[in-house]
Design a protein around this nucleic acid. Structure first.
Lengths: 129, 129
DNA sequence: CCCTTATTGATAATAATTATCAATAATAAT
DNA sequence: ATTATTATTGATAATTATTATCAATAAGGG
């Protein structure tokens, strides 16, 4: 009977990620959490981020060209990715379900678990250049 | 005046990719094209795939957990990714623009270049297990 | 044909993530 | 409580996909 232990490492990672809106990478989180637990290992950070993502506590987000990032907001929402500077912004609207309904007849035996709608472009700063 | 030369390597890669519906990786294309040009280098395959994707001749597709794949179909279309076996299927419907319109007021100075709507789930085969 | 420049092939380098494994910490059993 | 059991950690090695390097080759223009 394996139990999931909420270690001080996991707690520190969650506490650190929770308030953030900037979708940090594992490396970002590592350098931040090191201020609290200097001896924490990068592997532990990766490991626990994956475990917590699998448990649905946080969300793993992967986008073209960028390395993996993590988001404390697990609700269905879209991201805007600047192709110039790589910033990832939340889009404050939910993905509408029309496209999902549209493909109903195509689905057949397939089972759709989730969808992802993302936007790529230039952020406010990069658009002025 | 740099010109883009359609070398026999590029031609072989396109000819090979064009009829395929299975979204092969660079490695897949490499092993296939080696039957035509045994001495072709993996680097050449990667290089030319990137060049042709940048030129808009083919499309580069990147999805969570999978390595980069290439698609001869450059039209806007969604993909269905099986989280079990990793197969990438085309969804024969276009992304509707409603979600894009919905975020108009949020856009501000941002410039949206493209969007991507993908579905994750279990394919017909994997759903029966 | 020669000259210039793009492209190739071979290989080294990079970089992010994952695996390994002995040491440690947490919980459970006695 | 003390010991036994099991999960987790930290350190580091391994992996793997992709990118960079660079001398050699090939292509096309004049």
């Amino acid at each position: 009977m394996k139990s999931l232990r909420l270690t001080k490492q996991k707690k520190a990672i969650i506490d650190l990620l929770s308030p953030r809106k900037d979708h940090p990478t594992a490396e970002d989180i590592y350098s931040a959490v090191r201020k609290l637990i200097p001896k924490i290992s990068l592997a532990t950070v990766y490991r626990n981020l994956e475990i917590m993502a699998a448990a649905g506590i946080i969300m793993k987000i992967e986008h073209e060209g960028l390395n993996r990032r993590f988001d404390p907001d697990t609700s269905a929402h879209s991201h805007f990715i600047c192709v110039e500077c790589g910033i990832v912004e939340d889009i404050p609207f939910n993905l509408n379900n029309e496209s999902i309904n549209q493909i109903d007849s195509w689905i057949g035996k397939r089972k759709i678990l989730r969808s992802r709608l993302d936007y790529y472009g230039l952020c406010g700063v990069c658009a002025n250049e």
